[in-house]
Design a protein around this nucleic acid. Structure first.
Lengths: 224, 224
DNA sequence: GTCAATATTTTTGTATACAAGATAGGCGAG
DNA sequence: CTCGCCTATCTTGTATACAAAAATATTGAC
């Protein structure tokens, strides 16, 4: 068997969590996962340990692993931090972007625009991710980029819900345009402010988020 | 044996890395660690997996784990992000601190002052950590607090070096005073700016950092 | 003497076995 | 009928065993 089985298992399980295949609060049984992936418990445990370390699952001693089910205010806090980090990435990108970054950013923005005009929510969701990663890359801070990618990934399920909201896609695209302009103009503080606002969960989006979380919570309770 | 042996092992090894017992770039042999801690390889591996997930060790497939040895510019990036996150914590603390936070902050600052006047660098180092944690707590963002504590911990070895620099302790204490004042006055942006400056590695401190890293690098090279 | 190919040794990765704690179900007392 | 305790079962945690890959040493050819 390949040397990095546990690595693939980690990604597999992580993906299952992020896509919602494993629901928040769900217990992750080791033998069940082991038989499912056709391996023994050992690599499963190692994968779970890694996921536990990055906070995707909670490992309760002698009581197994469960998918973390963050309280609504915790999710809000995560968006709050994400907004600040994206703002930082934007500010650095404005100061440090190269010719290549310029091209990548404009291109990613164009792809978003295409997805938005064809009203393809799923594609916009994907291109949006590329756009944000282009900003992280343009910040030329490898560490910041890693942190942003990790947090962005962790917030994926919640962001997906938000895109369904009416007109959010058009609004998002418009904000992207302003962000690109600020970065390319080298205006660090404008880029920071715009990205903060773009990512932050405020106003209507806050109530939408809480509502979606509440719904999930209710569903979970009704099942239990 | 207790159910959370691997948990203790993780903390043990992590501490060894942060305190420099395990040097950057050092290979962490599984059987060696196992015999050292009197356990089998299994919990050692699980601990290493967790440390790998948070970026303290690098796990190269089929080739074992080594303590990560970040390049100087990577360390700089980490301080850069830390500065921003501390700034954010300070800004939130200014807006959200309670009576209890007020007391904790003032007390932590007083302890720092005592350590500084008695010129006790080790104690200042310790009290400084308490002070910063008081700010994280006052931000009333559990997620931000966790992120800050983790990064703060990871930067420990580098910060320790910095405190040795002439007059850094007095300077640090003075900055603490201004930070406390800004937070208690509820001036979020002042608190943010002051904390950014306090944590950031700029001017002389930058050359000091690079010099210390360079020294270590040289040592490592001479050994290899 | 040096380089390369091969054999040996070491070390990682995975599976399995076993021990101990947690959960659940049944049994008895009130 | 309900509550609490005790036992049976299940699950996790750790150790050990084995397989495969990498590192190292050895031997042979040029």
């Amino acid at each position: 068997m390949a040397g990095n089985t546990f690595h693939k298992l980690r990604d597999e399980i992580e993906n299952g969590i992020v896509t919602g295949e494993f629901e928040p609060g769900e217990r992750l049984d080791e033998v069940q996962l082991a038989t499912r992936y056709g391996v023994s418990r050992t690599p499963i445990r190692e994968a779970l340990m890694q996921l536990g370390a990055i906070g995707l699952v909670e490992i309760r001693p002698r009581r197994g692993a469960v998918v973390v089910d963050p309280a609504p205010d915790r999710v809000f806090e995560m968006f709050e931090v994400m907004a600040e980090m994206e703002g930082m990435a934007g500010a650095l990108a404005a100061r440090r972007h190269t010719e290549d970054d310029h091209v990548a950013l404009v291109q990613a923005h164009a792809q978003c625009e295409e997805a938005a005009t064809s009203e393809d929510t799923d594609r916009y969701y994907y291109e949006n991710e590329t756009f944000h990663r282009a900003i992280y890359a343009a910040s030329h801070s490898g560490f910041l980029e890693e942190q942003c990618v990790a947090l962005h990934r962790r917030l994926r399920p919640y962001r997906r819900l938000q895109l369904r909201v009416r007109n959010r896609m058009k609004m998002s695209l418009k904000e992207h345009g302003e962000i690109v302009a600020a970065i390319l103009a080298g205006d660090a503080e404008a880029a920071r402010a715009l990205l903060r606002g773009h990512v932050a969960v405020q106003g209507d989006r806050f109530s939408d988020l809480v509502a979606s979380l509440g719904k999930r919570e209710g569903k979970r309770l009704s099942l239990g």
